[in-house]
Every structure is written in structure tokens, then in C-alpha cells.
């Protein structure tokens, strides 16, 4: 958690707010924090979709297993 904060805090300071010193501007190219944020968002969206796909596939498998084991199949409402 401490490591995460030490990385993210300078990035947000540089990219997501107005640069307030010349030294910061010299260290980091313009919009560096925005670039990192954009790639993080791409990563998150793709990972969320992969997770949703695998979850759905697992659910289909589970339902199929349930359905194929005869003793567990009961009409709805009983």
C-alpha cells in the first residue's frame, strides 16, 4: 500500500493537476499522468471483460453439470 502511494502520488501531482514548478516539468513530459491513467483504464476495462467472460463460462458449466446429474433436475416451483 505504501509502495502504491509513493508511485501514484507523484504521478497525480504531475499529470492530473496544474504543474506548479519548473523542476517537475523538466522531470516529466507533459501529460505523463494522463497517459498513465489512460493506459490503466484500458487495462482495467479489458481485465473486467475477461473476468466477466470467465465468470459467465463457469456459470454455464455449473448449470450444465447440475442439469446433467438427473437427480438434481426438478421442475421449477417444486
Amino acid at each position: 500500500m505504501i509502495h502504491w502511494a509513493t508511485i501514484v502520488t507523484p504521478l497525480t501531482r504531475i499529470g492530473l493537476t496544474v504543474q506548479d514548478s519548473e523542476s517537475d516539468a523538466a522531470k516529466w513530459p507533459r501529460g505523463f499522468g494522463y497517459m498513465v491513467a489512460a493506459y490503466a483504464v484500458v487495462w482495467l476495462i479489458l481485465m473486467a471483460y475477461f473476468w466477466a467472460l470467465s465468470r459467465r463460462a463457469r456459470r454455464i458449466n455449473d448449470r450444465l453439470d447440475t442439469l446433467l446429474s438427473d437427480e438434481k433436475v426438478k421442475p421449477a416451483g417444486r
Binding site: W28, P29, R30, G31, F32, Y34, V42
Partner: peptide, 19 residues
Amino acid sequence: PMEKELQASQKIFYFHVAA
């Protein structure tokens, strides 16, 4: 290479337009 005006933020373009 780094774009002269937009600098690092131009790098967003590669994934944005491809997507």
C-alpha cells in the same frame, strides 16, 4: 518518438484510435 506539442499525452492516441 515523443510528439513535440502534446508530448506524453499523445501516446494515448495509439490505443484510443486502435480501439
